[in-house]
Design a protein around this nucleic acid. Structure first.
Lengths: 154, 154
DNA sequence: TTGCTCCTCACGTCACGTGAGGTGGC
DNA sequence: TTGCTCCTCACGTCACGTGAGGTGGC
C-alpha cells in the first residue's frame, strides 16, 4: 500500500477469499460465484474500464490483480459510490498500483453527508409508513371519519 | 374518501397549497413552481398515465383533480414507491375517485421491510466511512504501518 | 422585433437485466 | 449428440435530464 499525498490515501481491499483462494486464474463463472456478482456485471465493469482480465482466445481469465480490483469495486459500491467515482479512486495515478481506494478526507465527508441525507429521508418515510400502518390496523372498515388516516399522515 | 375493502384503504393527500390555491387551472410552469418538480417530470407522469391535464390547444391546463393526483404521486415517491406502484395505488378501481392512495397493510409492511433493509445498508456504509475518516485523520503521512487503515476497515 | 412560455421528438444517464444467436471443449 | 460454459450484440428498465428545433401570444 502506497500513500501518495496527504489528501488522498489508499484503502486496501478487505475481501477474504473463500473458494479457490490459491488458484491463480479463474473463469468468469468462477469469479461470479466467488464474489456473488453476475456475469453481466463483470463484463459491464470491464466495459467501463474497471477490470481488464487476460484473454485465452475469447474467454476471460481473471488473475489475482483482477480479484483485488473487483474487491475494491464492490467495496466502493457498498460505500455508495458510483462506478465513475470508483474508477477515479482506483486509477487516479494511472493504475500503477491498484491495491487501494484513493479516498480523500474531503471526499469521504462528502459521501457521509450524502448518505446521511438519504438516511433522514428513509427515516421520515418509515415514520410515515408506520403511522399509516397503525391507522390501517386501527381503523379497519370505518364508518364515520375515514379521513382520520389522512390526518394521521399529517 | 371511499374505503373499498378491508385490505386496501385510501390515504388522502396532504398537500398544503401555497401559491394560487384558489386558482382553478394552472399552466405547467405554475404547477412546476408550486410543487417543486420539473416540467419534464410532469410530462413524464402524464406519459405514464398518472396525470391527464386538460388541453387548451397544445398547452396543458391542470385543474384541482390534477393537483390532488400530483400530490398523491409525490407522496408515494416520498414513501419510496415506484411510479408503477403509485399508478396501481391511485387507479386501482378505474380512477373513478382519485382522492387517495390505496395502500394495503400488507403492501405497507412490505415497503417498511424494504426501507429498513436500505437503512441498514446505509448505516453500515456510514460506520465504515467514519472509520475510514478517522484513519485518514489520525494517520496522515504514516511511515510504518499504513495497512492500519485497511485493518480498521476490517 | 425581442422575450417568455409552451410544445414535441429523441438521445443520454445509471447499473445493469434479459434474451437472441453462436462457439468450443468434455 | 447432448450439456455446459463461454462469447458478442443489442434492446429493455427506471425516472427523468438535456438539448434541438419550432409555436404562440404579450
Amino acid at each position: 500500500v502506497v500513500w501518495i499525498d496527504d489528501t488522498a490515501a489508499p484503502l486496501a481491499f478487505c475481501h477474504k477469499p473463500e473458494a479457490a483462494p490459491n488458484q491463480a486464474e479463474s473463469t468468469i463463472g468462477e469469479l461470479s460465484r466467488e464474489f456473488g456478482v453476475t456475469l453481466r456485471a463483470l463484463r459491464f465493469y470491464e466495459n467501463k474500464g474497471l477490470l481488464a482480465p487476460r484473454r485465452a482466445g475469447n474467454a476471460r481469465l481473471y488473475g489475482r490483480r483482477d480479484r483485488s480490483r473487483l474487491s475494491l469495486i464492490l467495496m466502493g459500491k457498498k460505500l455508495g459510490f458510483t462506478l465513475a467515482e470508483i474508477s477515479a479512486m482506483i486509477s487516479a495515478d494511472g493504475a500503477a498500483h491498484a491495491d487501494g481506494l484513493r479516498l480523500s478526507r474531503e471526499k469521504c465527508l462528502e459521501q457521509i453527508h450524502l448518505l446521511e441525507k438519504q438516511q433522514f429521508e428513509i427515516r421520515d418515510a418509515l415514520a410515515e409508513l408506520w403511522r399509516i400502518h397503525a391507522g390501517l390496523s386501527a381503523g379497519l372498515v370505518p364508518h364515520e371519519r375515514p379521513d382520520s388516516v389522512a390526518d394521521a399522515a399529517r
